[in-house]
Design a protein around this nucleic acid. Structure first.
Lengths: 244, 244
DNA sequence: TTATGTGAACTGCTTCACAGCA
DNA sequence: TGCTGTGAAGCAGTTCACATAA
């Protein structure tokens, strides 16, 4: 997770004003937010397979969570299901898409074109759900000018106010450069920063920061393995829920 | 986050038996586990800067969390601090290192040598804290045989039981290949899988799975931005806590 | 009959506030 | 006096269990 849990405010629809279209005002738990993309992916798979209706149980199984959680998650946004039947996959997918803002255009700039930056710039996830890589930056002369993910790598100096048209900045630089890149992104008007560098960033209040640290998850793995009761050929308690 | 929160059991030290050396038996919350690497990083910085003692407040500020949380986190492992003074940075770092299992050797195999796989294989995080990339695999003939992160890329077919000496498998393949790679890793004896592919994996009970989905975090960003009260030039409530 | 939507209970994590110790 | 360690309170997220509706 990700990782560093954001204590984000997560404003309700009612607080949002005009955008709230008959949906009850609720605070959406962050835990729910990060499950929405998973449901969305599964619904897309189902639709592609010609399945038009799905129950909370079916969805829960595929998402590796429990059915009550699925129902609770959706109920936070309104009543999308039909009792006795389940959810209309297409309708549900559209609701989630809207909730995630995936029906809007989200230009993204990525700073740092090492392997990670290139992986991100080329990934499906950064070219769908409304996202669009509008610019990629680096400082290495050997990299500047190259074509990556549909754009040409520009020098970081060019970033000055590129974020005026790209509210989301992604930091994929080494840790040592992360804070100064964050400062540049903020100065250029970034509203949110997705930080892949292992550093805690300091940014002004209104800028949203989310951190993803690839090696923290690995360290969490070693933590759990280190205190495992010695590689048990232990009876299958459950098989199939994926996570855990 | 990382992301998909693992409802992991997180066994206590006492349950662990022999390894528990006078430390109180407590269940360590997952939330604490993922903070330990952050503390560890900060302590390393402090030590490098010649600072030998640190208070929970100082540490909290640098980690972007609150001081009570820092104290609670450490107290779960024992009483490491000195009242009136703070924590001995080196001692604390050693305790965290031990808790995370970073004082052991953790061979890791990585499957999928696209940009992400290469980023991981070359990253510091996979070559420190006890981790060691013992093998990297792919199926693309154009990639097999190349040198990456200190080893040579082998064909996936060679993986058969490489995990006998590498309990941790990392999946950095496209989503479509993730489940079959997971099956191979499990068959080869993997005890834990760190999955970067956007797919919920199905694995037998005792295998620990943690998922990191790079684009879910991006989608969470758009969720929060989408319901922001319209780019407020809004009074700094707080500046400096980084995450939010 | 079936499966949603939800009050209520529960579990887990965070934060407060202060006793206890250096 | 200063800062840790921790009961107790508070808050967030999950799960139960069932009323409700198709």
């Amino acid at each position: 997770m990700p990782l560093w849990r954001a204590p984000s405010p997560c404003r309700t629809l009612r607080e949002m004003g005009p955008d709230a279209i008959g949906v009850p005002a609720r605070r959406i738990p962050e835990a729910t937010v990060v499950r929405l993309p998973v449901y969305q992916r599964i619904l897309a798979d189902l639709l592609e397979g010609g399945i038009t209706t799905v129950s909370s149980e079916e969805l829960a199984e595929r998402a590796g969570v429990n059915a009550a959680k699925v129902r609770r998650d959706f109920s936070l946004f309104g009543s999308f299901g039909t009792r006795g039947t389940g959810y209309d996959a297409a309708f549900l997918a559209a609701q989630i898409e809207h909730a995630l803002g995936a029906d809007r255009d989200w230009p993204v700039v990525i700073v740092g074109m090492g392997n990670l930056g290139r992986a991100l710039a080329n990934s499906d996830g950064f070219h769908s759900y409304g996202f669009r890589v509008s610019g990629v930056y680096d400082v290495d002369p050997a990299v500047v000018g190259a074509a990556v993910g549909g754009t040409t790598v520009q020098h970081l100096d060019q970033l000055v106010d590129a974020t005026a048209v790209a509210p989301i900045g992604v930091i994929a630089t080494p840790a040592s450069a992360a804070q100064s890149v964050a400062d540049i992104l903020v100065a250029a008007g970034a509203e949110a920063i997705l930080n892949f560098a292992p550093r805690v960033l300091v940014v002004p209040g209104p800028v949203l920061v989310r951190n993803v640290d690839l090696s923290i998850e690995l360290q969490a793995v070693s933590f759990f393995l280190a205190r495992r009761p010695a590689v048990p050929a232990w009876p299958d308690l459950r098989s199939g829920t994926g996570t855990s």
